[in-house]
Simulated scan of single mutants.
Amino acid sequence: MNSLYRWALTALLCMGLAITSYEGRQPQALPTLPGQRLSPSSLAVGDWLFRLGTSTDSRIVEQVSGSRFSHVGMVVATTPTVLIVHATTDDDPAHPNQVLLTPLDEFLKPDMARHFAVARPTFLNPEQKERIAQYLKSTLGRTFVLEPRDKPHLYCTTLLAEAIATQLPSFAPRWTSLDVPVFRGDYLFPQAFADYPGLEWIYRQ
């Protein structure tokens, strides 16, 4: 299989996993647009963090999916600093294609995010969110698998969907069918999470 095609779809679907750990870091101010501000103290375990990246592949995701976002992760801790578990190909070049545990300020730094948003799934209770967070933390280091829905797969959106389904089996975000050379089948874009019923938008640029 042509590696360029595989890289392109990897970028399209914001896939990959990377592992790293951050402890003892203090919260930092988040990047904002003029007149806007998000305080880390307003976030809770279980919140979904969306961003639109700065790279060419993020722009492709934006166009193909019709979404303002190319990536999604979930808050798994809020003290002493907010931490996000997410799946990405290149946030940490030293640890590509694994599961990342990333401080909020790094997840949203300007060279990674053109804009971002925070949504709170109100259809999950605090106990479910905590168990989902624990599940996500247990996935650190799992191998990235780029495949359609009918084959084993693991990328940013499917990782989150898999974790949520452990507590809410009825969770069913909308998949998108692709029919392009080399890649055909159903894939899961961040927009499916942004469109899911029962979200409270905590912050949106």
Results as ranks from 00 to 15, higher is better:
residue 71 H to C: 11
residue 71 H to G: 07
residue 72 V to F: 12
residue 73 G to K: 08
residue 74 M to N: 05
residue 74 M to G: 01
residue 74 M to H: 01
residue 77 A to S: 15
residue 77 A to I: 03
residue 78 T to R: 12
residue 81 T to R: 09
residue 82 V to R: 02
residue 83 L to S: 04
residue 84 I to H: 01
residue 85 V to H: 01
residue 86 H to T: 00
residue 87 A to C: 14
residue 87 A to K: 06
residue 88 T to K: 11
residue 90 D to H: 14
residue 91 D to E: 13
residue 91 D to A: 10
residue 92 D to S: 02
residue 92 D to W: 02
residue 94 A to G: 08
residue 95 H to W: 04
residue 95 H to Y: 00
residue 96 P to M: 04
residue 97 N to E: 03
residue 99 V to M: 11
residue 99 V to D: 02
residue 101 L to H: 05
residue 101 L to N: 11
residue 102 T to F: 10
residue 104 L to Q: 08
residue 106 E to G: 02
residue 106 E to F: 01
residue 106 E to S: 07
residue 107 F to L: 06
residue 107 F to Y: 14
residue 108 L to R: 06
residue 108 L to K: 11
residue 108 L to S: 00
residue 110 P to T: 13
residue 110 P to S: 14
residue 112 M to W: 15
residue 113 A to F: 09
residue 113 A to L: 05
residue 115 H to T: 14
residue 115 H to I: 12
residue 116 F to T: 04
residue 116 F to R: 12
residue 116 F to S: 12
residue 117 A to S: 12
residue 117 A to T: 10
residue 118 V to K: 11
residue 118 V to D: 04
residue 120 R to T: 08
residue 120 R to N: 14
residue 120 R to K: 13
residue 121 P to D: 09
residue 124 L to M: 13
residue 130 E to H: 05
residue 131 R to M: 00
residue 132 I to A: 02
residue 132 I to L: 00
residue 134 Q to K: 06
residue 135 Y to P: 06
residue 135 Y to T: 10
residue 138 S to H: 07
residue 139 T to M: 07
residue 141 G to F: 04
residue 143 T to H: 08
residue 144 F to R: 00
residue 146 L to M: 10
residue 146 L to Y: 01
residue 146 L to A: 05
residue 147 E to W: 12
residue 148 P to Y: 08
residue 149 R to Q: 15
residue 150 D to N: 15
residue 151 K to E: 13
residue 151 K to F: 05
residue 151 K to V: 08
residue 152 P to I: 09
residue 153 H to M: 08
